[in-house]
């Protein structure tokens, strides 16, 4: 009797231990799962992280979309950061360039990274950037001032219900992280 229950135990223990290990993996699997879900539902409003090719669209002059620009510094990022215009009226299909400026406030070289997002999130697929300082990390020499153009287009197939798109940039200080890497 003891004999057979010993074998039953061993089997069960292995199965349960395996479930435990699989659940550890599941925790990690939630990371890509979350990213896919965000992509589908537009949570986070992440727009293209790499430059898209400039293609010519039929410009839709029948409506104007308001685009707002936000410049944010993550806590403890020692920059000044502003934009040429806080809002713009744009025609879907037409390309625009708007300048962003940032200045290093310190005596040190900074490595910073801008993360962008649009709101409402689901407009992310219609807001395309061909030039952007957010495609790569930026290095600022002490007190350096940079002018950073962003060239973008709102695609003409943007659903009609969206009248305003807010594009937000946040600069993160990656100086320490880049040293570690």
């Amino acid at each position: 009797m003891i004999d057979s229950s010993g074998q039953k135990n061993t089997r069960l223990v292995w199965i349960l231990a395996f479930v435990g290990i699989a659940m550890f993996g599941f925790g990690y699997a939630l990371v890509p799962l979350y990213n896919v879900l965000c992509d589908i539902t537009g949570i986070n409003g992440k727009t293209n992280a790499q430059a898209v090719k400039e293609v010519v669209y039929q410009v839709d002059k029948s409506r104007e979309v308001k685009v707002e620009f936000l410049t944010t510094l993550n806590e403890s990022t020692p920059l000044l950061f502003w934009t040429q215009a806080t809002t713009m009226k744009v025609y879907p299909g037409q390309y625009y360039t708007v300048n962003f400026y940032a200045k290093n406030k310190t005596e040190k070289t900074l490595v910073v990274r801008a993360i962008d997002s649009v709101s409402p999130g689901l407009t992310k697929d219609y807001f395309k950037k061909t030039v952007c300082f957010c495609f790569s990390q930026q290095t600022f020499k002490p007190h350096e001032l940079k002018t950073m153009p962003v060239r973008f287009v709102v695609s003409p197939d943007l659903p009609k219900q969206y009248k305003t798109i807010t594009l937000s940039y946040t600069f993160f200080d990656n100086t320490e992280l880049s040293v570690k890497k």
Partner: peptide, 25 residues
């Protein structure tokens, strides 16, 4: 195990330059 995984990600974010939860990365 899921909790253990989550705190392990915190640990690697803090000390090994992963960016599970770090917006900058």
């Amino acid at each position: 195990p899921v909790f253990a995984g989550a705190v392990t990600m915190l640990l690697t974010d803090k000390f090994f330059a992963t960016s599970f939860f770090d917006a900058a990365g």
